[in-house]
Design a protein around this nucleic acid. Sequence first.
RNA 1: GCGAAUGUAGCUCAGCAGGUUAGAGCACCAGAUUGUGGAUCUGGGGGCCGAGGGUUCAAAUCCCUCCAUUCGCCCCA
Length: 433
Amino acid sequence: MNALQTVKGFADIFAPQSDVYTFMENTARRVFGAHGYSELRLPILEYTELFQRGIGADTDIVRKEMFTFADRKGRSLTLRPEATAGVVRAYTENGCRSRERVSRFFTLGPMFRYERPQLGRMRQFHQINCECLGADEPHADAEILLMLMSFLSGLGLADLTLKINTLGCRVCRPAYREALNAFLRGLDPERLCFDCRRRLGTNSLRILDCKEDSCREATRGAPELRGYVCPDCAAHFDSVLAALEREGAGWELDPRLVRGLDYYMRTTFEVVSAGIGAQSSVAGGGRYDGLVRDLGGPDVPGIGFACGMERLALLIGESGGEAERPDFYFALLDGKGADLALSAARILRGQGLAGAADFSPGGLKGKLRLAVRNGAQFCMILGEDELAREEIVIKNMDEGSQVSIPLSSLADWAEIRAETKRERGRKGGCGNL
RNA sequence: GCGAAUGUAGCUCAGCAGGUUAGAGCACCAGAUUGUGGAUCUGGGGGCCGAGGGUUCAAAUCCCUCCAUUCGCCCCA
């Protein structure tokens, strides 16, 4: 244990990595906002029971991956491992149903799962979630999928595959489960992995999703859910696919796609990417029509998805941030200029320019080097000479040219500077010019 | 929870048939150039060699334990 060390699976995110996260968040606000989704900021701590009942007591998440502890009065609290349960709780607790027929929320922030960290998997990780409550039309499914793909392309991502499946509903799933169980009973249990042998008695659907070669081989001839879905579910799913087709969205039917949380039904989906290691799934979600009622809320349908920000960041890469180049950097040659630098910087910022001030005295050469490293476009030089003349030297770091202007006209200079910057931005140039 | 690899300077790593004061590149600081930056040259600061124990005259190097990181399995976003 070292006090100066992050907890395992928790990370500090500095620039330029943090710029990539800002970029993802801004894109999310833009795209989801354009679809009528409003931001919901949720607590990261909930009563443990919410997740046990929401996610399912037999899921891996609840069985062994939650950060759970007792508060000072002995109540069991859990750091949220996913967002949907919290959204449903907030929706119900605040009576959203009586205010509007359909509620659309997005929420983003850290989630916590006690897993072994590896590439693209942290114990504190970050998700962007969208939830649409109150709509069960297939077009709602199609729209949220289109919105997800639009978000991902807004991040500049390509080469992603949308995998989709239907899990059926409370009507048809029991019949399918029975057929699957019958098939599995005819199998030599030795052909299944240890976990799947347990799943036989608890959640046999998940065996289809197992990644073990032996299990995949053994279940090759298993009955497919598609053949058992009731007419309502089949029609619903066909409509979803047809709508996606009409809107030109590509998808891949994956009959074995089973999600790891118990509340999913009907449409389920996952977006996978090649090239970010073993943790290839960047987004996933589905419909959860019974969940709100099961948690004690109104009987409303819902559909939603989550995107893993760490994994999206891996795909976006370091270059994806949108950090702006600083306009100025203040260089003091002797300490007497600090008062002036402080107020001069405030004037520049008041005109919309951005930059840092270095109040420590030092040689010009060293200060210019710091300005270069800072990336600023202009170095504002305040030395003994300038103070005596009540002027400031402004050096253009790209061209090497410099001017000396009276301090009294600094605001005018800043105004002109800010205007040309805005024009450049309107022309759509990259902010780094 | 399981498997494998790796821990040496701020960063990337070399050094390991045990043998003096532990090295390089990059980065940083200073000077050459008294107040003009990205180049060059010269110099400089910086290390409980992950931690603890053991073997030995002698351990960064060999053995054991622990800790941490990473990549997989699993799980999922």
